[in-house]
């Protein structure tokens, strides 16, 4: 167990910072978060990093390891080539608060814009739906809000369209509500006008990084895009919409 590993960790804030080198002993089964904690406990007590569950369930510990977005608590050290330093940086798309902690408050603001679940009238009956119907939305409801998808989406990462674009996480969330068997709200205007669904050009980068393996593009974004087309560009539907404006498609 005398084997050492070298970590390069970003130390600093949004204005200035540098990659600092730390060496720590490795243990079997170690994940990158363990290594960062070892640095914290023995060499850099003020090193900022977020975590909670240490089991891939809370989505707190997202960062970029050797340039790839990862949950630090699920990222095994033995997957990286032995003897080479491992570089850990904060998510690029969000402003750094300190070290590995970024300011993700923008995501919470977007979430607030999405109209809440509205239960349809079940006429006093106990609501019923099948497991198959549940499965469809449970996929979206698995999201742990790690924001790794937000971090890689080029609309946010390269173009910083945070005022006009909601990002894959919130397409997933909206899909979970729109396809909910008991929901009676319509969020298509929101998707078109405020969440910029049209800006997504289906590169699938978001799906690739999702630690919950949610098929973000195929199961959430594309069906939502189809609904938008149906609602806004299908002439019959358009007429229907003018006649019955509040109804859900």
């Amino acid at each position: 167990m005398d084997e050492q590993v070298t970590l390069m960790i970003y130390r600093g804030d949004n204005v200035q910072g540098e990659m600092k080198e730390y060496k720590i002993p490795v243990a079997p089964g170690m994940v990158v978060l363990d290594a960062v904690h070892a640095v914290q406990a023995t060499q850099a007590p003020d090193l900022a990093v977020r975590w909670n569950c240490k089991a891939g369930k809370c989505g707190s510990c997202g960062a970029e390891v050797n340039g790839r977005p990862r949950l630090l608590c699920m990222d095994r050290m033995d997957k990286y080539p032995a003897g080479e330093p491992i570089a850990v940086k904060p998510l690029k798309t969000f402003p750094v608060i300190k070290d590995l902690a970024t300011n993700v408050s923008w995501n919470y603001d977007v979430n607030k814009k999405i109209p809440a679940f509205k239960m349809r009238d079940t006429k006093g009956e106990e609501p019923r739906f099948s497991q198959e119907e549940a499965d469809r939305v449970q996929e979206f409801r698995k999201c742990i809000e790690c924001f790794l998808c937000q971090n890689v989406c080029h609309v946010l990462r390269e173009h910083d369209e945070k005022n006009t674009f909601g990002g894959p996480r919130f397409f997933v969330r909206t899909a979970g509500l729109e396809m909910h068997p008991l929901d009676d709200e319509n969020r298509l205007d929101l998707l078109k006008d405020q969440m910029g669904l049209g800006y997504c050009n289906i590169t699938k980068c978001c799906t690739e990084v999702c630690p919950e393996s949610i098929a973000i593009t195929d199961n959430a974004i594309i069906p939502l895009k189809e609904r938008l087309v149906d609602q806004y560009y299908d002439p019959l539907r358009k007429l229907y919409r003018i006649l019955f404006p509040a109804k859900k498609t």
Binding site: D13, Q40, A44, P45, D46, L47, A48, V49, I97, K98, D99, A101
Partner: peptide, 11 residues
């Protein structure tokens, strides 16, 4: 604890 009061887990 070292460092300052900003986001300082050691503190």
């Amino acid at each position: 604890v070292g460092g300052n009061i900003q986001f300082n887990p050691g503190w």
